[in-house]
């Protein structure tokens, strides 16, 4: 699985950082950054949950 993020639509709510902290972080302005695009097998559900809970649709992934 590959973790992706759209910084243009991110609103900085921080749900991804809470849900999938190995893959996502926020920069100083609060906008999402992908920490690690290659998702470890144990983190796949966390990335799915992060995409589900992202309020602005900024978090996506490719299976």
């Amino acid at each position: 699985m590959k973790a992706e993020a759209n910084r243009e639509v991110c609103i900085g709510a921080g749900m991804c950082v809470l849900t999938a902290p190995t893959c996502y972080d926020q920069d100083d302005d609060g906008t999402v950054v992908v920490l690690r695009a290659e998702v470890a097998p144990g983190d796949e559900q966390a990335v799915r949950d992060a995409a589900d809970s992202c309020p602005s649709g900024a978090i996506t992934f490719v299976e």
């Binding site: 900085g12 809470l18 926020q26 100083d28 609060g30």
Partner: peptide, 15 residues
């Protein structure tokens, strides 16, 4: 909305 909210998001990050 976005213009104003963006000025604040950095103040409320998880970190």
């Amino acid at each position: 909305h976005t213009r104003l909210r963006k000025l604040l998001t950095g103040q409320f990050t998880v970190r």
